[in-house]
Protein backbone atom coordinates (compact mmCIF):
# COMPACT_ATOMS: atom_id res chain seq x y z
CA UNK A 1 0.00 0.00 0.00
CA UNK A 2 2.77 2.38 1.00
CA UNK A 3 4.73 1.41 -2.12
CA UNK A 4 1.71 2.11 -4.33
CA UNK A 5 1.20 5.56 -2.77
CA UNK A 6 4.94 6.24 -3.17
CA UNK A 7 4.66 5.21 -6.82
CA UNK A 8 1.71 7.58 -7.39
CA UNK A 9 3.60 10.38 -5.65
CA UNK A 10 6.71 9.68 -7.70
CA UNK A 11 4.69 9.71 -10.94
CA UNK A 12 2.98 12.92 -9.93
CA UNK A 13 6.24 14.62 -9.07
CA UNK A 14 7.75 13.40 -12.32
CA UNK A 15 4.78 14.79 -14.30
CA UNK A 16 4.96 18.14 -12.51
CA UNK A 17 8.75 18.31 -12.97
CA UNK A 18 8.42 17.44 -16.67
CA UNK A 19 5.70 20.06 -17.15
CA UNK A 20 7.81 22.68 -15.36
CA UNK A 21 10.85 21.74 -17.48
CA UNK A 22 8.76 22.04 -20.64
CA UNK A 23 7.41 25.42 -19.50
CA UNK A 24 10.93 26.61 -18.62
CA UNK A 25 12.11 25.48 -22.05
CA UNK A 26 9.15 27.27 -23.63
CA UNK A 27 10.02 30.52 -21.83
CA UNK A 28 13.63 30.14 -22.90
CA UNK A 29 12.54 29.77 -26.55
CA UNK A 30 10.11 32.71 -26.20
CA UNK A 31 12.84 34.93 -24.79
CA UNK A 32 15.10 34.00 -27.68
CA UNK A 33 12.29 34.63 -30.16
CA UNK A 34 12.22 38.32 -29.25
CA UNK A 35 16.02 38.63 -29.36
CA UNK A 36 16.90 40.26 -32.69
CA UNK A 37 20.49 38.99 -32.52
CA UNK A 38 19.20 35.45 -32.84
CA UNK A 39 18.15 35.99 -36.44
CA UNK A 40 21.32 35.71 -38.50
CA UNK A 41 21.39 34.69 -42.16
CA UNK A 42 21.79 30.99 -41.36
CA UNK A 43 18.73 31.08 -39.10
CA UNK A 44 16.74 32.96 -41.73
CA UNK A 45 17.68 30.33 -44.31
CA UNK A 46 16.62 27.50 -42.01
CA UNK A 47 13.39 29.37 -41.25
CA UNK A 48 12.56 29.72 -44.96
CA UNK A 49 13.29 26.04 -45.53
CA UNK A 50 11.14 25.06 -42.57
CA UNK A 51 8.24 27.21 -43.80
CA UNK A 52 8.66 25.61 -47.20
CA UNK A 53 8.57 22.06 -45.76
CA UNK A 54 5.76 22.80 -43.32
CA UNK A 55 3.46 25.03 -45.37
CA UNK A 56 4.29 25.20 -49.06
CA UNK A 57 4.93 21.49 -49.66
CA UNK A 58 1.67 20.54 -47.93
CA UNK A 59 -0.33 23.19 -49.78
CA UNK A 60 -1.93 21.04 -52.58
CA UNK A 61 -3.02 18.38 -50.08
CA UNK A 62 -4.13 21.06 -47.64
CA UNK A 63 -6.24 22.91 -50.21
CA UNK A 64 -7.89 19.66 -51.33
CA UNK A 65 -8.64 18.75 -47.69
CA UNK A 66 -10.04 22.25 -47.07
CA UNK A 67 -12.41 22.06 -50.05
CA UNK A 68 -13.55 18.48 -49.31
CA UNK A 69 -13.95 18.97 -45.55
CA UNK A 70 -15.55 22.34 -46.10
CA UNK A 71 -18.15 20.90 -48.46
CA UNK A 72 -18.89 17.97 -46.17
CA UNK A 73 -19.12 20.04 -43.00
CA UNK A 74 -21.22 22.78 -44.60
CA UNK A 75 -23.50 20.17 -46.18
CA UNK A 76 -24.01 18.34 -42.89
CA UNK A 77 -24.46 21.51 -40.84
CA UNK A 78 -26.91 22.98 -43.37
CA UNK A 79 -28.95 19.77 -43.61
CA UNK A 80 -29.20 19.46 -39.83
CA UNK A 81 -30.14 23.10 -39.40
CA UNK A 82 -32.87 22.80 -42.06
CA UNK A 83 -34.08 19.59 -40.41
CA UNK A 84 -34.29 21.31 -37.03
CA UNK A 85 -35.74 24.51 -38.51
CA UNK A 86 -32.73 26.54 -37.35
CA UNK A 87 -31.28 27.62 -40.70
CA UNK A 88 -31.16 31.22 -39.41
CA UNK A 89 -28.17 30.12 -37.35
CA UNK A 90 -26.24 28.96 -40.44
CA UNK A 91 -23.89 31.97 -40.46
CA UNK A 92 -23.38 31.82 -36.72
CA UNK A 93 -22.45 28.14 -36.91
CA UNK A 94 -20.09 28.71 -39.83
CA UNK A 95 -18.27 31.51 -38.02
CA UNK A 96 -18.46 30.03 -34.54
CA UNK A 97 -17.66 26.45 -35.40
CA UNK A 98 -15.99 26.20 -38.81
CA UNK A 99 -13.79 29.31 -38.66
CA UNK A 100 -12.87 29.51 -35.00
CA UNK A 101 -12.79 25.81 -34.06
CA UNK A 102 -12.79 23.44 -37.01
CA UNK A 103 -10.21 25.20 -39.23
CA UNK A 104 -7.51 25.55 -36.52
CA UNK A 105 -8.11 22.01 -35.29
CA UNK A 106 -7.78 20.36 -38.72
CA UNK A 107 -4.73 22.50 -39.55
CA UNK A 108 -3.04 21.69 -36.27
CA UNK A 109 -3.77 17.98 -36.73
CA UNK A 110 -2.31 17.97 -40.24
CA UNK A 111 0.80 19.93 -39.24
CA UNK A 112 1.30 17.90 -36.06
CA UNK A 113 1.01 14.62 -37.93
CA UNK A 114 3.29 15.71 -40.74
CA UNK A 115 5.79 18.22 -39.36
CA UNK A 116 5.60 17.65 -35.58
CA UNK A 117 6.48 13.98 -35.92
CA UNK A 118 9.20 14.82 -38.46
CA UNK A 119 10.78 17.43 -36.18
CA UNK A 120 10.62 15.01 -33.23
CA UNK A 121 12.33 12.25 -35.21
CA UNK A 122 14.87 14.67 -36.69
CA UNK A 123 15.99 16.02 -33.30
CA UNK A 124 16.03 12.51 -31.81
CA UNK A 125 18.22 11.25 -34.67
CA UNK A 126 20.53 14.24 -34.26
CA UNK A 127 20.76 13.47 -30.58
CA UNK A 128 21.53 9.79 -31.23
CA UNK A 129 24.13 10.68 -33.89
CA UNK A 130 25.63 13.25 -31.51
CA UNK A 131 25.12 16.01 -34.03
CA UNK A 132 23.93 18.26 -31.21
CA UNK A 133 27.27 17.73 -29.47
CA UNK A 134 29.03 18.71 -32.71
CA UNK A 135 27.06 21.96 -32.76
CA UNK A 136 28.17 22.60 -29.19
CA UNK A 137 31.76 21.96 -30.18
CA UNK A 138 31.51 24.49 -33.00
CA UNK A 139 29.80 26.91 -30.56
CA UNK A 140 26.64 26.96 -32.63
CA UNK A 141 23.61 27.72 -30.50
CA UNK A 142 21.19 24.85 -31.00
CA UNK A 143 18.24 26.96 -29.90
CA UNK A 144 18.95 29.66 -32.45
CA UNK A 145 19.96 27.40 -35.28
CA UNK A 146 17.72 24.35 -34.78
CA UNK A 147 14.77 25.09 -32.55
CA UNK A 148 13.82 28.72 -33.16
CA UNK A 149 13.32 28.44 -36.96
CA UNK A 150 11.24 25.30 -36.55
CA UNK A 151 9.05 26.80 -33.85
CA UNK A 152 8.64 30.07 -35.75
CA UNK A 153 7.79 28.08 -38.85
CA UNK A 154 5.20 26.15 -36.83
CA UNK A 155 3.59 29.36 -35.52
CA UNK A 156 3.56 31.08 -38.91
CA UNK A 157 2.35 27.97 -40.74
CA UNK A 158 -0.52 27.28 -38.37
CA UNK A 159 -1.68 30.91 -38.38
CA UNK A 160 -1.49 31.26 -42.18
CA UNK A 161 -2.81 27.81 -43.02
CA UNK A 162 -5.71 28.09 -40.53
CA UNK A 163 -6.70 31.43 -42.03
CA UNK A 164 -6.37 29.99 -45.53
CA UNK A 165 -8.44 26.96 -44.50
CA UNK A 166 -11.17 29.26 -43.15
CA UNK A 167 -11.19 31.38 -46.31
CA UNK A 168 -11.34 28.32 -48.57
CA UNK A 169 -14.06 26.67 -46.48
CA UNK A 170 -16.13 29.86 -46.50
CA UNK A 171 -15.59 30.28 -50.26
CA UNK A 172 -16.55 26.66 -50.95
CA UNK A 173 -19.47 27.17 -48.57
CA UNK A 174 -20.70 29.95 -50.84
CA UNK A 175 -20.80 27.55 -53.79
CA UNK A 176 -22.20 24.57 -51.88
CA UNK A 177 -24.84 26.56 -50.01
CA UNK A 178 -25.96 27.96 -53.35
CA UNK A 179 -26.11 24.48 -54.90
CA UNK A 180 -27.50 22.58 -51.91
CA UNK A 181 -29.69 25.13 -50.15
CA UNK A 182 -30.45 27.57 -52.97
CA UNK A 183 -28.91 30.39 -50.92
CA UNK A 184 -27.96 33.57 -52.76
CA UNK A 185 -24.47 35.09 -52.43
CA UNK A 186 -25.88 38.18 -50.76
CA UNK A 187 -27.76 36.13 -48.14
CA UNK A 188 -24.68 34.01 -47.47
CA UNK A 189 -22.36 37.00 -47.03
CA UNK A 190 -24.93 38.84 -44.88
CA UNK A 191 -25.35 35.80 -42.64
CA UNK A 192 -21.58 35.48 -42.22
CA UNK A 193 -21.03 39.18 -41.56
CA UNK A 194 -23.82 39.28 -39.01
CA UNK A 195 -22.10 36.51 -37.04
CA UNK A 196 -18.48 37.57 -37.54
CA UNK A 197 -16.76 39.19 -34.58
CA UNK A 198 -13.25 40.59 -34.63
CA UNK A 199 -12.70 39.42 -31.07
CA UNK A 200 -13.42 35.80 -32.11
CA UNK A 201 -11.02 36.07 -35.04
CA UNK A 202 -8.27 37.55 -32.87
CA UNK A 203 -8.74 34.78 -30.30
CA UNK A 204 -8.60 32.25 -33.15
CA UNK A 205 -5.32 33.68 -34.44
CA UNK A 206 -3.78 33.75 -30.95
CA UNK A 207 -4.93 30.18 -30.39
CA UNK A 208 -3.33 29.14 -33.69
CA UNK A 209 -0.05 30.81 -32.73
CA UNK A 210 -0.01 29.09 -29.33
CA UNK A 211 -0.82 25.73 -30.91
CA UNK A 212 1.87 26.27 -33.54
CA UNK A 213 4.35 27.00 -30.81
CA UNK A 214 3.54 23.91 -28.77
CA UNK A 215 3.11 21.38 -31.57
CA UNK A 216 6.72 22.02 -32.59
CA UNK A 217 8.25 22.81 -29.22
CA UNK A 218 6.96 19.62 -27.55
CA UNK A 219 8.37 17.27 -30.25
CA UNK A 220 11.71 19.14 -30.01
CA UNK A 221 11.66 18.71 -26.23
CA UNK A 222 10.92 14.98 -26.53
CA UNK A 223 13.47 14.55 -29.34
CA UNK A 224 16.07 16.02 -27.00
CA UNK A 225 15.19 13.31 -24.48
CA UNK A 226 16.38 10.54 -26.79
CA UNK A 227 19.36 8.59 -25.45
CA UNK A 228 22.38 7.38 -27.44
CA UNK A 229 20.47 4.28 -28.54
CA UNK A 230 18.65 4.09 -31.86
CA UNK A 231 15.65 2.42 -30.17
CA UNK A 232 15.04 5.58 -28.16
CA UNK A 233 14.05 7.43 -31.35
CA UNK A 234 10.57 5.85 -31.83
CA UNK A 235 9.98 6.05 -28.07
CA UNK A 236 10.72 9.78 -28.05
CA UNK A 237 8.49 10.31 -31.12
CA UNK A 238 5.68 8.34 -29.46
CA UNK A 239 5.87 10.33 -26.22
CA UNK A 240 6.28 13.57 -28.11
CA UNK A 241 3.20 13.02 -30.28
CA UNK A 242 1.03 11.89 -27.37
CA UNK A 243 1.99 15.04 -25.47
CA UNK A 244 1.33 17.14 -28.56
CA UNK A 245 -2.25 15.83 -28.65
CA UNK A 246 -2.68 16.47 -24.92
CA UNK A 247 -1.38 20.01 -25.45
CA UNK A 248 -3.83 20.55 -28.36
CA UNK A 249 -6.73 19.47 -26.16
CA UNK A 250 -5.63 21.68 -23.26
CA UNK A 251 -5.23 24.71 -25.57
CA UNK A 252 -8.67 24.03 -27.12
CA UNK A 253 -10.34 23.90 -23.70
CA UNK A 254 -8.51 27.00 -22.44
CA UNK A 255 -9.38 28.92 -25.61
CA UNK A 256 -13.06 27.97 -25.25
CA UNK A 257 -13.03 29.26 -21.66
CA UNK A 258 -11.33 32.48 -22.78
CA UNK A 259 -13.78 33.00 -25.68
CA UNK A 260 -16.81 32.42 -23.46
CA UNK A 261 -15.36 34.82 -20.85
CA UNK A 262 -14.75 37.48 -23.50
CA UNK A 263 -18.25 37.10 -24.94
CA UNK A 264 -19.66 37.61 -21.43
CA UNK A 265 -17.83 40.89 -21.05
CA UNK A 266 -18.48 42.21 -24.58
Amino acid sequence: MTTAIEQIGRSGLHAVRASLDTLAFAFKILARMFDVRAYNSAVRMVLINQIYFTSVQILPLFLAVAVIFGAIVIGIIGQYLIHLGLFDYFGQLLMGFVVTEFAPFITVLLIALRSGSAVNAEIAVMKVNKELNTLHVFRIDEINYLFLPRILSGILSIVLLSSLFSIIVLASGLIFSSLLFDMSMNDYVTALLASAKFSDLIVMLIKCAIMGFFIVMIPIRYGMRATDELTSIPVSVLHGMVNVFIAIMIIEVVSLIVVSSISKFI
Binding site: I48, I51, Y52, S55, V56, L59, L156, L160, L161, S163, L164
Partner: peptide, 10 residues
Protein backbone atom coordinates in the same frame (compact mmCIF):
# COMPACT_ATOMS: atom_id res chain seq x y z
CA UNK B 1 7.74 29.99 -53.20
CA UNK B 2 7.74 30.71 -49.48
CA UNK B 3 7.58 34.47 -50.11
CA UNK B 4 4.71 34.06 -52.56
CA UNK B 5 2.84 31.81 -50.12
CA UNK B 6 3.25 34.27 -47.24
CA UNK B 7 2.39 37.35 -49.30
CA UNK B 8 -0.68 35.81 -50.96
CA UNK B 9 -2.01 34.33 -47.74
CA UNK B 10 -1.49 37.54 -45.78
Amino acid sequence: KVGLFIVLTV
